[in-house]
Design a protein around this nucleic acid. Sequence first.
DNA 1: GGCATTCTCGTATACCATACGGAATATCCG
DNA 2: CGGATATTCCGTATGGTATACGAGAATGCC
Lengths: 261, 261
Amino acid sequence: MTVRHSGGGQPERTLALLWRNQRPAASDGRRSAGRRPSLDVDGVVRAGVRLADERGLDAASMGGVAKALGVGTMTLYTYVPSKEELLDLMVDEVLAERELPAPGEPRPTNWREQVEVYSEETRAMFQRHPWLARVSTVRPPVGPGMLAGREYLLSTLLPLDLSPRDTNTAALAITTYVDSAAGQEAESLQVERTTGQSHEAWWHERSDLWETYFDAGKHPAMTTIWHANGYQDTVREAATDAYRYGLDRLLDGIQAQSDAL
Amino acid sequence: MTVRHSGGGQPERTLALLWRNQRPAASDGRRSAGRRPSLDVDGVVRAGVRLADERGLDAASMGGVAKALGVGTMTLYTYVPSKEELLDLMVDEVLAERELPAPGEPRPTNWREQVEVYSEETRAMFQRHPWLARVSTVRPPVGPGMLAGREYLLSTLLPLDLSPRDTNTAALAITTYVDSAAGQEAESLQVERTTGQSHEAWWHERSDLWETYFDAGKHPAMTTIWHANGYQDTVREAATDAYRYGLDRLLDGIQAQSDAL
DNA sequence: GGCATTCTCGTATACCATACGGAATATCCG
DNA sequence: CGGATATTCCGTATGGTATACGAGAATGCC
């Protein structure tokens, strides 16, 4: 299931944390008074990401991150207001890892290939950080990483000359598809790795389904596809094919809209 | 974030629980010996669903469900092997609530309208049970509800005469899109309800983003869309439009593939 | 009535986030 | 050099989670 997070009570502090590296640093006289910090926000966030990558999202607990950094649990609260915000920071950190051409930087000429870049970078991100699939995307962290992604995707669609509203709508539809399909794929691989059991073995354990419970009369379409060899050899192949196929058809549909103008 | 569940160690018992109401009951002599049960599996599952509906997935803890049923926590383990399985049973229960025409039952003539039915029933399901969006869909419960959904969707696509493999692939792509978009929508409404804060209020709290951090030079596409009034009035409208738009374009693309045969 | 069988559930374990308050350590100011 | 002040560090306590274990209660069969 998915982990909750919302943004907490002080949106201003959260924004300042999210954008901590994007602005000059605002060095206002007041320099140093009091004990020197032994950590910094980036270190805490990176430790959280590393733990989640290596041992799953649950391992990125406040206690776990603190132990990884060699400090007491409560020390983290000096750097981050709560677990929710830490998660937001982790999410935006990895969103920003995607290497999406900034405005003015070289990119493929074809809009579909540009969307391809978004898709592949996002897929790679989910592969590196499968725990992302378990974090809710409603009210996401509005940090540099998320905005860069939205900006790039919108920019790929502008040449289609859809109405501004349709352009935005199309971008939302694409992110919905890409993010969830890429997330499912990554989670699927992750489950095979952490359980040490392939999906095929998992299905094999459930062969009773077909022998005992499945009623071909109630499932004629499935039965037809089955007998016509419509099921791929592996679950992974099926998922990969479905990802590509769905994205291609979605882009076909958007292209057709644009052509009809 | 999403909640984990995999299926546990005894797939046969899990399958028997999932399909408990689909088979005659297998009354083998051995009837009664020992203390009479005070509950049954259906009651436990329904209590779990009701709690999750009313107070969120976290409220459907083993202790919470037991308290709602007026028994001790450990009593539940007589009916259900673990929390994982309970969750699987809850998921298949609500998947089965969708009123999808069975083979032979009347349905729209047009394949797109048939997919529409799947989409709307699934959307309604997520609205009734927003916690579903937080449950992982890798290795889902292979019960009657899930199979009925797959069967129906495949059956809507057969008339397109795609290859068996493409038919299956297209069905996977559609469920990926519909399930995740419907889940996001439901979760979004849920968040507004439980936090008591509209998305607009949430964005308003973050107006510092635009005033302090946003750099129009780095985000020309967003800025263009903004000035062209490309953003809907409410987040809800934007999400609903994106859902419809994306599904329509995806189906356009699939239709085009079929026409090209 | 005895006894096998089955259900019931209190207790213990090991996690989780975080409120609170006090101790440690740094600079600033006199 | 000596407080005063500011800041970080973190032990402890609280209330939550799933579930292993084993004792106790209720039932039907003989």
